[in-house]
Nucleic acid binder design. Sequence first.
DNA 1: GAGATATTCAAACAATTGTTTCTAACCGGG
DNA 2: CCCGGTTAGAAACAATTGTTTGAATATCTC
Lengths: 221, 221
Amino acid sequence: MAQPDTVTRILNTAEVLFAEHGFAETSLRNITSKANVNLAAVNYHFGSKKSLIQAVFARYLDPFTERFHKALDELEGRYPDGTVPLEILLEAMAQCVLEVPGERNSLKVFMRLLGLGYSQTQGHLRRYIEEEYGGVFSRFTELVRRATPELPDVERFWRLHFILGTVIFTLSGLDALRDIAEKDYGEHVTVRDLVQRLRPVVVSAMSAPLPPVAMPRVEVG
Amino acid sequence: MAQPDTVTRILNTAEVLFAEHGFAETSLRNITSKANVNLAAVNYHFGSKKSLIQAVFARYLDPFTERFHKALDELEGRYPDGTVPLEILLEAMAQCVLEVPGERNSLKVFMRLLGLGYSQTQGHLRRYIEEEYGGVFSRFTELVRRATPELPDVERFWRLHFILGTVIFTLSGLDALRDIAEKDYGEHVTVRDLVQRLRPVVVSAMSAPLPPVAMPRVEVG
DNA sequence: GAGATATTCAAACAATTGTTTCTAACCGGG
DNA sequence: CCCGGTTAGAAACAATTGTTTGAATATCTC
């Protein structure tokens, strides 16, 4: 079997090392040695470590956004009034996330990278992701807005991030949690099982009753 | 105003730098210079950078676990059959989280550290937290078990981690989200507001309908 | 106040980091 | 065949990392 060329060999190795140990904790020498590639190759092909990190993300996010856009196109066509039911929207997003890495590496790496992208304080990464892929997300949230007209805008904003937290946190820490679950309950869980479990929880979260209106706090002398 | 002694000066500076930039991205020299302390002081007082990180966590988690244990004691006394309603349990936990850092620094730093502790792949930290503070958590989950007897054990396990993800993810990324929310909706949000919003969402998530039973996949020839 | 202990300090240590440089090898088109 | 630009390679670079050392200073005890 022919070895892939240098840049994909670097990307393949880098993404699993990043996912395993984080960005700052993974040295270029560690990557290049495991990839059987010269150290200088990274700076030659990518320019810098930062750009390598972004390239790792792009290889996942580019096909994802493409699929997601297509899926939303299809949905908007199927519901000509522009109001797609919430469950359908969430389901479409879940399917797109599930399909993307299937071709190549594991979904686990993808989710772990997403989690790191949010938590690790690599400023450049956050900016890069927002600029490059903010478009699909706002398109999605606009559809969610039409699907949940009863929700105040602020409330919907926060709830979307609540469930984003649930998904990223769970799937990105999946390995550790899976071990515990398997040890304590003897049940081997796949990512698809988890999505199955997430579905009703996410839907319930989005349609929870509104919180009591915040009283402006009045100082009592 | 008298300056606090060296070790607390180090801890005070370290915790905000860690929360801002992560552990690996924060150098001891950065900490010691901002704390007006000699570089060697860290290794003298704490032994190593790892131990400093653990000490930063301990200063938050020790008082938290103490309060949390007391709160659970009080609840178990109030409900002698050992069945505390779920809402009360969640409320108690929220209150303990909110109260702890009030004395000293901001709740924001605490939550950010918690998020980093989960996502950053500092193996020693995970182990330290589990060994040192796993006790309260399992006590809490046992109470949750009694409060939700209708939930299968596995399902409850996952749902607890779902909402854990929501809370940590949201509160730990609060700063960035707050900026967006304020810009888009002109509404300044405090941590307490967020807890207000989280309450109904979390309760709904825990009491969502069970997912459809997973069919064992049968290969169709 | 002398002596012992605890703390601070500047300096150096050894290891590792990302990046650059320059040379050698490759490879397709004249 | 050999020449052009592209890729691979070994080595060195400069900067930064956590940690250690040994002397100076402060703090406390008897």
